[in-house]
Amino acid sequence: MANRGYDVVVDVDDHEGDLGHTDLQEDLEFHSSNFNDTQSSKITPDSTYQPPSSTSGSSKRYLWTLSFYAQFFAVDTSHVLHRCFSALVPRRPFLDILDGNPDLYGPFWIATTVVFILFLTGTISQYLASHHDQAFIYNFKLLSGAAGLIYGYTAIVPIALWGLLKWFGSGNAPGESSIGLVESWALYGYANVIWIPVALISWSPISVLNYVFVAVGFTVSAVFLTRNLWPVVSVTEAKVSRILVIGVVVAHAGLAIAIKFLFFA
Rank of each mutant, 00 (worst) to 15 (best):
A155V: 12
V214C: 09
G171I: 12
Y49F: 15
L128F: 11
P231L: 07
W64G: 03
T219K: 05
H131P: 04
S144M: 02
S234M: 05
S207K: 07
V248E: 04
N36F: 11
A135E: 11
D27I: 02
Y127A: 13
F264W: 07
G145F: 02
F213M: 08
N3P: 01
W185N: 03
D103V: 02
G100R: 03
L118P: 02
I110L: 11
T219F: 09
S78C: 02
G100Y: 07
P51S: 13
W195P: 06
A87H: 05
V157Y: 13
S207G: 10
Y62C: 04
I201V: 15
R83A: 07
S40C: 00
H132D: 14
Y69F: 09
N192S: 04
P93G: 12
N192R: 06
A186H: 09
I257W: 10
T236G: 11
N172C: 03
L142C: 01
G171R: 00
Q134S: 13
L262N: 13
I259D: 01
G180Y: 01
P51K: 09
A74D: 14
D99I: 04
W195G: 03
S59L: 09
V89P: 01
S54K: 10
G148H: 11
Y49P: 11
V249E: 12
T38S: 09
F94I: 14
R92V: 15
Q25G: 11
S177I: 01
S32N: 13
H21A: 08
L187F: 07
D11H: 03
H31S: 09
F261G: 00
A199F: 05
F263V: 09
D96G: 02
I201S: 01
F72P: 01
P158D: 02
T55F: 04
I97F: 12
I196D: 14
P174F: 00
R91M: 12
Y62S: 09
L143Y: 02
F168G: 00
F168N: 02
G100P: 10
Y105A: 15
P174G: 03
L165H: 04
W64N: 14
V157H: 07
P90L: 11
D18I: 01
A146I: 12
T44E: 10
F30L: 14
A87E: 08
T38C: 08
A74G: 01
V157T: 08
Q25F: 07
I257L: 14
V8D: 02
K42I: 15
F213E: 00
K239C: 00
A265V: 13
V220M: 03
S53W: 00
V8T: 14
Q25A: 15
F72M: 03
L81V: 12
A258E: 11
A253L: 15
V216L: 13
S41C: 04
R92M: 12
A215L: 07
T226D: 10
F119T: 08
E237A: 06
A215H: 03
P102G: 03
T55V: 03
F136V: 13
I156S: 13
S86E: 15
F116R: 06
N172I: 01
W167Q: 01
D133L: 08
H79Q: 15
W109K: 00
P231M: 08
D11T: 13
D18K: 00
E26Q: 02
A111H: 00
